[in-house]
Computed example of a mutant assay.
Amino acid sequence: MHEVLHDQLMSMARYVRDPQHNRPPPGIEAQRLAVYRQLFFGNVESLLSGGFPVLRTSLGPKKWQAVIETFYADYRCQTPLFTEISGEFVDYLAEGGGDALDLPPWVVELAHYEWVETALLLSDTREPAHDPEGNLPEGVPLLSNLAWPLAYQWPVSEIGPKYMPHEAPEQPTLVLARRGADLKVHFSLLAPLAHALLASLQERSCSGREHLEGLAKVIGMDGASILPQGLALLENLRVQGVVLGTRA
């Protein structure tokens, strides 16, 4: 009895996922199966449309529908939570999902850029213990867990239905995404030095002075020449709440 029920449920699940390549379970009217298909698929499509509005409008209705259908049929999500399906969709695209649909080369990065807003809005991460008045040059500056320095090959902040580039520009698009005290996610473009500093804060645990000296070596400058500008940048980032202060 249990095996029969299991087979029936799996047959129905396969059909609801991909009715083009799976037989319907016996004994259920086609009209009823269509209701289930629309209920489950419609919920996923609606969720992803809300999470990726620029990607959806840029691809157009037919291409977008095809992408969602292949994702729904082929990808095996690792979470049952609806709030995490957007991240699963980004993983699907990054792993080559939808390649057969001849998608534009910027799709993966644009999807990630849009997902970042959802991820930061829903994040329940806690900030580490810190001294908000700490000495940034000598102490260990701490980057907020809600501030993400990002680098993209494609100009993701500009792509949309009216601008869909065929070639990536020579310079990357450097972005800071952060959730502010107003509980909204803000995006800002970064200069190369600012992005390099934020990336260094994210990757290394050392004093502010050591961060700046390391960056100076990378770009072939003397540490003393970059220090005043770098320290002013650190202090400005603290004022914005991007840098919390120093490790307690």
Rank of each mutant, 00 (worst) to 15 (best):
Q202H: 11
A168S: 13
C206F: 05
E203W: 03
F187R: 13
A168V: 05
H195Q: 01
H166C: 03
A191H: 06
R178D: 12
L198N: 06
P172G: 10
L198H: 03
P161S: 08
H166R: 12
E210K: 10
L198Y: 01
L174G: 08
K217Q: 15
H195N: 00
F187M: 09
H186I: 02
A199C: 10
P172A: 08
H166T: 13
L201K: 03
L198R: 04
G208W: 07
H166G: 14
K162A: 12
D182T: 06
K184T: 08
E158T: 11
K162M: 05
G160V: 00
D182M: 04
R179Y: 14
K184D: 12
L174W: 06
P169T: 14
L190D: 11
Q202A: 15
P192T: 04
L215G: 00
L197Q: 09
L201H: 05
L198P: 04
G214Y: 08
P172F: 11
Q171L: 11
F187I: 06
F187H: 12
I159V: 07
V185L: 09
K162I: 01
A177W: 06
L212F: 06
E170P: 01
G208E: 09
E167I: 04
H166D: 14
A199H: 11
E170C: 02
L197M: 13
Q202L: 10
A196C: 03
V175E: 05
A196R: 09
G214V: 07
R204Y: 13
P192R: 02
P161Y: 02
P165W: 11
C206H: 10
V175H: 05
L189N: 03
R209L: 15
M164W: 02
E213Y: 12
L193T: 06
A216K: 02
V175W: 03
A177M: 10
R204K: 11
S207A: 00
E203S: 12
E210W: 01
G214S: 12
K217S: 14
E158L: 15
P161N: 04
A216T: 02
S157Y: 04
L197C: 08
Q171N: 14
L212I: 15
E158K: 13
E158W: 08
S157N: 11
S205M: 05
K184C: 05
P192G: 01
Q202Y: 03
A168H: 08
G180C: 10
E167D: 13
L198K: 04
S188W: 02
